[in-house]
Amino acid sequence: MAAIVALVLAALPIVLVPVYAVVPPPFSSLEAWTRLSGVAVKKQWVPLTDIAPNLAYAVIMSEDGKFCEHAGVDWSAVREVIDSDASRGASTIPMQVAKNLFLWQSRSYVRKALEVPLAYYMDLVWSKRRMIEIYLNVVQWGPGVFGAEAAAQHWFGVPAAQLSLRQSARLAAILPNPLVRNPVKPGRSTAHLAGIVEKRTRQAGAYVTCIQPDN
């Protein structure tokens, strides 16, 4: 029985990824665990056209600068981590989507190993615009706060479409630790990171061409 359950769970992403190419995911594994832990959840799916472009640009420049170039995994970043003290991660946006949608949050080599094929599979099936649209709608931006629309409303009292560049940069800056960092009253390190993200977002240019409306 355990083997059957494991097989079914492993097969779910294979079936669901093509479905999610046209249908919004009803929930992510992270959201499900959050609800089971008793935390109230705020979320509202919105299309990419209803999210300020600067938020998508800021997230790409902060989380995955080679998003438009790689096919799901940025091996150059992986090699940098291996060659360094491994104090920072090398997860691309597709790898983060794989983790948030289908996997568990605790760190392990098994989870990382599963992220890689899932990231490649999703990048093959989805367009880059669909990938960033799903990412922005499932990522956590605070305790129980899921997706760009809920984050914009919760933190700044505006719809996601009206986020300013500075607000977008601050939201991107809290993603490494959204349960602790506050985009409205950022600490010194978060404010410094947000400033860097804001500058990079202004210069995004060719780094974000793959998510332009005509792509």
Rank of each mutant, 00 (worst) to 15 (best):
I4N: 09
A10I: 06
A11T: 03
P13S: 08
V15L: 14
L16Y: 13
L16I: 02
P24Q: 12
P24W: 15
F27A: 14
S28G: 12
L30G: 11
E31V: 13
R35I: 14
G38V: 09
V39T: 15
I51Y: 07
N54R: 06
Y57R: 15
Y57H: 14
I60W: 02
E63H: 12
F67V: 05
A71T: 03
A71D: 14
S76E: 12
V78K: 09
E80I: 00
E80L: 06
D83V: 09
D83C: 03
S84W: 07
P94E: 05
K99E: 05
N100I: 12
F102H: 01
R107S: 10
S108V: 05
E115M: 04
M122R: 07
M122G: 03
N137T: 03
V139Q: 13
W141C: 07
W141P: 00
W141K: 03
G142D: 06
G147F: 00
E149N: 11
A152F: 15
A152C: 12
W155C: 01
G157S: 04
G157D: 08
S164A: 05
L171S: 07
V180D: 02
K185R: 15
T190K: 07
A191L: 12
A191G: 10
H192W: 13
A194R: 06
R202G: 15
Q203L: 12
A204R: 11
A206C: 05
T209D: 15
C210K: 05
P213V: 08
N215M: 13
